[in-house]
């Protein structure tokens, strides 16, 4: 469902991610753990392109969300002028590709310098697979550490804003392309409101529909943030340390809601420091260290029989 291919992320000279690849299956719950600064939040933010990866590709349901990365396509590399030059200098096919990859020789920002064939191939990959970034994001719900509810909107408006705006935009696009319309804009609004109330009922906050987020407690805010993401009916949910900014007594209510979602089969990627929770809900645990996946496996494998010394060290500090 969600494919991460060889992601690198640099902030200036700082390398945060150094080649991360993973794949999230439908219905799978992946928990990412690791020390602060190991790149776990950055990895999550790269998944829905809030951070643009420096290299690498993100595929969502078979669609490419990032620009194509030439280093991931042998045929593109072979079409480049740099490759032609290296081969004419006597390097074998394998050595030339390796040298190009290792020394970062492709000028992917300037396809023209690598020849028209190279540029055409890159463009073809994008034309065949590329998807508008906003369309991709609509299928991914994101929950932030600091909630990020819209301060200028009521709780209900927070939940309905995106479904209404995007629903109306779709309607406009359909009208332009001459497709038959199955809804009026009013339908979209009333549907969104209905769904918002249902979601609020689910978390028991229906009486807070018309208040502003500033009047809610941290736990309530985070639960509203979660259902705001759910209102877009995403196929995968990304949780970025959802309980780290909460008072201890509110952690439980948020974890309960996430547990509920996961039980209903929601595909999820969760970055968290709650090890007990990670053990309980995860199908797979990823331990990140220094910008790479240092250990990966079932909760039992990672928590009870870690192989990587860094992972052992980390777990001995957090499990007490």
């Amino acid at each position: 469902m969600l494919d991460i291919k060889n992601i690198y992320k640099n902030f200036g000279d700082l390398q945060v991610l150094k080649g991360v690849s993973t794949h999230v299956e439908k219905g799978e719950v992946v928990v990412i753990i690791g020390v602060s600064g190991s790149g776990k939040s950055t990895l999550l933010r790269c998944m829905n392109l809030l951070e643009e990866p420096t290299y690498g590709e993100v595929w969502m349901e078979g669609k490419l969300m990032t620009p194509p990365d030439p280093y991931l396509h042998f045929d593109v590399i072979r079409a480049s002028r740099t490759y032609a030059r290296l081969v004419s200098e006597g390097l074998s096919d394998e050595d030339a590709i390796k040298k190009i990859k290792d020394d970062d020789l492709l000028k992917e920002k300037h396809p023209k310098t690598e020849g028209p064939e190279y540029a055409a191939l890159l463009k073809k990959i994008y034309d065949d697979n590329g998807i508008d970034i906003n369309l991709g994001r609509q299928k991914m719900g994101m929950v932030f550490q600091s909630f990020n509810l819209f301060n200028n909107k009521t709780v209900k408006e927070n939940i309905t804003l995106a479904p209404i705006k995007i629903g109306k935009q779709r309607l406009k696009d359909a009208k332009k392309s001459g497709k038959p319309l199955d809804k009026t804009p009013d339908d979209i609004v009333s549907e969104a409101n209905e769904k918002a109330m249902k979601l609020l009922e689910r978390i028991g906050l229906q009486d807070k529909a018309d208040v502003y987020p500033s009047t809610l407690s941290g736990g309530q805010r985070q639960r509203v943030a979660i259902i705001r993401a759910l209102a877009m009916e995403p196929d995968v949910m990304l949780f970025d340390e959802p309980t780290s900014a909460l008072d201890p007594e509110m952690v439980g209510e948020v974890l309960d809601l996430i547990r509920d979602l996961v039980k209903d089969g929601m595909t999820s990627v969760i970055v968290t420091h709650e090890m007990g929770f990670a053990k309980e809900v995860a199908d797979r645990v990823i331990f990140m260290h220094d910008g790479v996946i240092a250990e990966e496996g079932t909760p039992d494998e990672v928590f009870n029989h870690p192989k990587n010394p860094r992972c052992k060290d980390f777990l001995s500090k957090v499990l007490y």
């Binding site: 991914m140 719900g141 995007i166």
Partner: peptide
């Protein structure tokens, strides 16, 4: 970020 993450 929250608005963009919803696909707006």
């Amino acid at each position: 970020e929250a608005a963009r993450s919803l696909g707006l």
